[in-house]
Design a protein around this nucleic acid. Structure first.
Length: 599
RNA sequence: GGGGGCGUAGCUCAAUUGGUUAGAGUACCGGACUGUCGAUCCGGUGGUUGCCGGUUCGAUCCCGGUCGCCCUCGCCA
């Protein structure tokens, strides 16, 4: 027989119903609300599982002496234990908004476990206090149901992922948190070493190199729910520390990784959030995604794809169209189905302002009517020409056509963003609908204007699509890597690649980017050495847990799904971290601060 | 690092062109009330208008600086 103190609960605040009628039970919890009626008091008692109404009746039989005096003094957030009898409510007194609404607990005895001061904000499901205050008192904010629900579902999701990985022979391997700084990529968080004066550990931006070493070690399939750290400026979807599902597999090609991860995501979304994802996830070549959606993370909840109209534009009388093509640019359009009515002249002006803000010189448009086109380009597309354009765009009466003529880069940026904006306005981006896809074969390098040199587009270890590429300096911008992104609803949620597993090729990539032998040795020496002793072909991916959960739950930002987040200035308002180090600590670490405003 | 928004009672907000004693809802405290469930009714406490400085007879309001929070561009291989 388990021991239970008299104050300890027999049930939770979410589970009592008519089946427990007339039973004597004990509940523990926080007082969410209290309603005093003189000789009759109602308490809403809350715990993680729900809310149960407690009734304290001065005149009820069997109530312990003094109970009513205790209850009269109770207030919000006091922690109490209630021994009572479960009573069915009369039909007209049932609260249909609560799982426990058919019953109430008639108090026989009330014990105060902990008194609460008036909280700085009311603990209600609906957010009333501002986020700054809520972050300062995060432990109070976390009492709110929406936050608890996010943490619960996040945990269920991660558990589903772990189960899936376990089922597929992956080994959960912990990699170092105290590791080494690398020059490329994000700014590192540094940790001074006491026993190595003047030297610093870096917190990992990701376990990238270690997971590849796991492959060299022959561990074959690695995964980790890994904390990562990046000291860059923050956004609604970025925290200085965040969590990745990190995966690496040996002896694989792209489709092996993609198939495996696809199954994992489907299982995680189903078991974590009850979301069924349509399969298979479409797989786009990078340039195909850019051509059709104007971006490398397409939102597939709706169509409205970009249609190339350059050929039609070239023979047009419209100078803007014709001129763009003649000077090496392109003309593309989108067809917003049924949007003609939704956009007034003023609405279209706003769209024009929107695209000019993205670098476009203007926005050409036309509304399709039963008789032809209306709008800025109508006079160039009368009669058959108009019909030809509509046929090309797949447009029918009531649709709105929007065109941008410019360089390919500008057209894709402007129309890609415009597509999302118009799609949003037309209600095509339903937050309860989820569509995933893969984007493959990203460019291997990108030009860094500031530094005046090429740099990795993805990471230094991504293999080129063509293993035999002789010279990276030839046609550099068209060299593709075996890198892929996982995308859901227009969010990049994961990124990975098939890796380079041979020293020679890795060395040539570094060499091309002007990373000297010395730098290579200093930064990645142990990885390059490892490959000398037999590195298997391998590849992997990392998925952002915080972002997936945020998207699945339809929350505003990732702070909503992290128990103890930091502000956009990377400050923990509750713990007041970071904080000052004492002179003694600094001296022991042999470091000094040059900050103008210490502590 | 740049741009934008915000900062007034514990909380959410208001306050006319710069003008009397800075208001309301809610919370809290006190009172009434035996069927409420965002209880209701009556009364009350509660303010360095983020901070510093300037303009002015007079500043919540205008100006400069500063601190904090949020969004965003750069940044985040």
């Amino acid at each position: 027989m388990k021991q239970r103190s008299s104050w300890q609960r027999t049930h939770t605040c979410g589970e009592l119903n008519l089946a427990h009628k007339d039973q004597e039970v004990v509940l523990n919890g926080w007082i969410e609300n209290h309603r005093h009626h003189g000789q009759l008091v109602f308490l809403d008692l809350r715990d993680r599982y729900g809310i149960t109404q407690i009734v304290v009746d001065q005149e009820a039989k069997g109530t312990a002496a003094g109970t009513f005096d205790v209850v009269k003094r109770l207030g919000a957030e006091d922690v109490i234990s209630v021994r009572g009898s479960v009573r069915a409510r009369d039909a007209d007194k049932v609260n249909k908004n609560r799982a426990t609404g058919e019953i109430e607990l008639v108090a026989l005895q009330v014990t105060v476990l902990s008194e609460a001061e008036t909280p700085p904000f009311e603990i209600l499901d609906k957010v009333e206090a501002n986020e700054e205050l809520r972050m300062q008192y995060r432990y109070l904010d976390l009492r709110r149901r929406p936050l608890q629900e996010a943490l619960l579902k996040r945990a269920r999701f991660v558990t589903a992922i772990r189960n899936y990985m376990q089922e597929h022979r992956f080994i959960d391997i912990e990699t170092p948190i105290l590791t080494k700084s690398t020059p490329e990529g994000a700014r590192d968080y540094l940790v001074p070493s006491r026993v190595h004066p003047g030297k610093f550990f870096a917190l990992p931006q990701s376990p990238q190199i270690f997971k590849q070493l796991c492959m060299v070690a022959g561990l074959d399939r690695y995964y980790q729910i890994a904390r990562c750290f990046r000291d860059e400026d923050l956004r609604a979807d970025r925290q200085p520390e965040f969590t990745q599902i990190d995966i690496e597999m040996s002896f694989v090609e792209e489709h092996d990784v993609l198939d495996m991860v696809e199954g994992m995501v489907v299982q995680g979304m189903r078991e974590g959030f009850g979301i069924e994802l349509p399969q298979p996830f479409p797989r786009f070549d990078y340039f195909e995604a850019m051509d059709k959606y104007g971006c490398d993370k397409p939102d597939l909840r709706f169509g409205m794809t970009l249609v190339d109209c350059s050929a039609l534009a070239a023979k047009s009388d419209f100078k803007v169209f014709k001129g763009a093509v003649e000077t090496g640019g392109i003309v593309k359009g989108i067809c917003a189905e049924g949007a003609a009515e939704k956009y007034s002249r003023k609405g279209i002006d706003e769209l024009t302002t929107f695209v000019t803000g993205l670098g476009a010189k203007g926005l050409a448009w036309a509304k399709v009517t039963a008789t032809g086109l209306e709008g800025s380009i109508a006079k160039f597309y009368e009669g058959d020409k108009g019909k030809e354009l509509c046929a090309h765009m797949g447009a029918k009466a009531g649709d709105l056509l929007l065109f941008v003529a410019d360089s390919k880069k500008v057209v894709h940026k402007a129309l890609g963003d415009l597509r999302l904006k118009v799609g949003g306005t037309m209600g095509l981006r339903d937050p309860k609908v989820f569509r995933c896809c893969w984007v493959l074969n990203f460019p291997m390098f990108e030009w860094n204007d500031e530094k005046g040199r090429w740099q990795f587009a993805h990471n230094p270890f991504s293999a080129p699509v063509n293993w035999d590429v002789k010279d990276f300096s030839v046609d550099t911008e068209n060299i593709r890597s075996r890198a892929y992104d996982f995308v859901m609803n227009g969010w990049e949620l994961g990124s990975g690649s098939i890796r380079i597993h041979r020293t020679e090729l890795q060395a040539r990539v570094f060499e091309f980017l002007g990373i000297s032998k010395e730098q290579q040795r200093a930064n990645f020496g142990f990885l390059l050495d490892a490959y000398k002793y037999g590195g298997p072909p391998h590849g992997g991916i990392a998925l952002g847990v915080d972002r997936i959960v945020t998207l699945a739950l339809g929350r505003e930002g990732i702070r909503d799904v992290i128990a103890f987040p930091k502000t956009s200035m990377a400050f923990d308002l509750m713990a007041e971290a970071p904080g000052a180090a004492s002179p003694e600590q600094m001296a022991e670490l042999q470091i000094a601060s040059t900050a103008k405003r210490p502590g």
